[in-house]
Design a protein around this nucleic acid. Sequence first.
DNA 1: GATGAATGAGCCTTCATTCAT
DNA 2: GATGAATGAAGGCTCATTCAT
Lengths: 229, 229, 229, 229
Amino acid sequence: MPCPFDAKPRWERRKDARPQELLEAALDLFVERGYAATRLEDVARRAGVSKGTLYLYYENKEDLFKAVVRGNIVPAIGAAETSVAEFDGHSADLLRHLIHSWWQRVGATKASGIIKLVTAEAGNFPELATFYQDEVINRGTRAMTTMLERGVARGEFRPIDINLMTQVLVAPMLMLITWKHSVGPCPRAELEPLAFLDTFLDVALHGLLPTGAGATQAAGAGAASVHAG
Amino acid sequence: MPCPFDAKPRWERRKDARPQELLEAALDLFVERGYAATRLEDVARRAGVSKGTLYLYYENKEDLFKAVVRGNIVPAIGAAETSVAEFDGHSADLLRHLIHSWWQRVGATKASGIIKLVTAEAGNFPELATFYQDEVINRGTRAMTTMLERGVARGEFRPIDINLMTQVLVAPMLMLITWKHSVGPCPRAELEPLAFLDTFLDVALHGLLPTGAGATQAAGAGAASVHAG
Amino acid sequence: MPCPFDAKPRWERRKDARPQELLEAALDLFVERGYAATRLEDVARRAGVSKGTLYLYYENKEDLFKAVVRGNIVPAIGAAETSVAEFDGHSADLLRHLIHSWWQRVGATKASGIIKLVTAEAGNFPELATFYQDEVINRGTRAMTTMLERGVARGEFRPIDINLMTQVLVAPMLMLITWKHSVGPCPRAELEPLAFLDTFLDVALHGLLPTGAGATQAAGAGAASVHAG
Amino acid sequence: MPCPFDAKPRWERRKDARPQELLEAALDLFVERGYAATRLEDVARRAGVSKGTLYLYYENKEDLFKAVVRGNIVPAIGAAETSVAEFDGHSADLLRHLIHSWWQRVGATKASGIIKLVTAEAGNFPELATFYQDEVINRGTRAMTTMLERGVARGEFRPIDINLMTQVLVAPMLMLITWKHSVGPCPRAELEPLAFLDTFLDVALHGLLPTGAGATQAAGAGAASVHAG
DNA sequence: GATGAATGAGCCTTCATTCAT
DNA sequence: GATGAATGAAGGCTCATTCAT
């Protein structure tokens, strides 16, 4: 319960909330329609303010766009780093966990729209691309790399080329995002994300696990066999 | 007063060459700026003609874009279909061939920019999305599916879930494109495409080939081992 | 350097007055140049605003035109309907009243130019034609028909073919409009509208009134005799 | 049979025919679509020549338009003048003859489209309006006036105001043209031209014939009674 | 701070007109 | 004479941005 002496009049608290409300409205619309097709008037209306007010908080459309990206992507990285640092079991299960929880926290949510948005529009905003590279790609890649190194070090993975394999493992995630936000909505282009990820994991573990150790054997709950069909 | 001998005609008759010149200019600009951000006047100017001339050859922006896709992407799909229909050897080699020649004809060229553009903007241009779905995605998917069916039928692949595996195999191609056109241009984000593809192929073949048949054994020339580092 | 006290704002806030100002400018220009030849920029400029402002009040050219019709023609139709519904005297006088007040409210005003415009250009703008048919022609025709039915029912008119007679009665109004806006402006083509209408009415009533009842006898004030001249 | 020595090579005769072919194509399209909506390229194509060729014969669009009017309207006036000069019977029958043959020769044919066109677009072509006034309106009006004078002089018509009555008599013709080319094509706006004209004639003759002489009695074959219902 | 009326540059598309061949 | 490729000025409409209130 907040101290009543700190209470501010309604309009003033409102003032502080404005940028966040605008950011959320912008997030929704950018994800829904893309950058060029999003009209600032619609953003303002959805945030419950007038068009002019938007310009009190953001210099222009590009500035708003950058703010949306900055505010919505970075926080999603920490959990993966924590998992890798603290995980206890077999590295194959860690890999499965990373992929699955990435899907839960990012892929299946609105945040995925931001990632697609960045890949789509980063080319027109170099500054944004740099920011994204530093704060998202590099950190995410490092978590994946660490996981692979852990697996090799513990003898749970074969001694593969770690950098390349990292990117191989990132591929299906980017793929799912792209699919979901571009061709997915079209008829006849259905893709079951979890089945797709499990199929991929099964394939990948065939390549990662030492010869003789079947992919399915090493897996805990939730591993789908490619033999099913 | 300009020398009269230097006088140039207001324009030059080049009917036969025009469409190709316009197509190339359009490809450049679409890749560089995206669909919505490309102005037809700029396309015309880059092709050395006036705005009106463009409309002598293409009905409208959409028509021009379709022509770009037909000229730069569709032929590669046709080649893949032919390969699948006529290939003679082991299905693993057919898979490698499809992936590698796709990279040569599309991924490594400017045409890849069109694919990225479609994934980025298709949502805002439904008619383009439908066109692309029909002419590129469906045909490409079908070729990949046929290749897998061939492998299973000939006993060269395990009896996997073909639809899911098709999408798994498409993933790295989409991934490379996305990488190349969004984060790729940034420093420290280098990705060696061929090595990436070979790594992926090796992993995938581990999952596809019947147990006991090592991925590397079945491959012809060009197969990279995941052990290489 | 201009006197700072003379400085005018880039624009003036006149939200309430704008629609009417735009409507008047549009009426002038539509009448003067026709529908297709009227440029919205000119309408805006004549109303003292910029092109974009026009679109704050009217969705597009067609919408603007409809508003002009609604503001200048439709009310006259409504008045005729009211007259027919509430009129008390002899039906011949109702007919005279309809014709005369139509002339006062439409024929003699700028609004007549809109009617001419519709007859001239409706063929090229089907949506406008439909709108006009519904809002003006059908309602106007119905009012005239009702008036005739009233006359016949009360024994004031002979039992004529009502649909044909309705069109006969519409003819001179259309005629006057056509005359006024095409050949009328030319020298030596003068036509005194009221005299023309009275002549027509006299002729028409000869055909409408029961035999034995002279046209002039049945008329109240304002009836002109064809014998005069 | 033409003298064989006069025979010209095909292309040269073709050359002479070109203007007429273009005129006919232009007539069709102007009537069908109106002035502004008719594209010169379509006119040229319908005449079987190229766009450039059209400009060899007509300076520009307006020039072509004038030529169409000159070639298609003026000839239709002479017949009426001749009828008035040579008619032998009752003036009421002459009136009926003028109206009916006007309908046959003009109203029911493509030429009516030209009249509508002129009334619709004359305002934008003052020079054309003058020409039309002199060659069509004045001559047509004079014929009608002469007919009325004849009727009055012979005691077949009452001593009406001839100028006004002339215009009353022109009204239904203009009305039919306007109807046919603007609202007529719309559903629910059917108008039977001949019935309309006969209804009008019956009404008019009620006003024209001396008291005591019923309209139908004086009429020859083809007079419709307004009593029919 | 907040508003929203007003602006005007910009884009796609059309078509009368020109002119090298 | 004939052609038709090429031009470029419009015109309808949109929307990011400004600014008087």
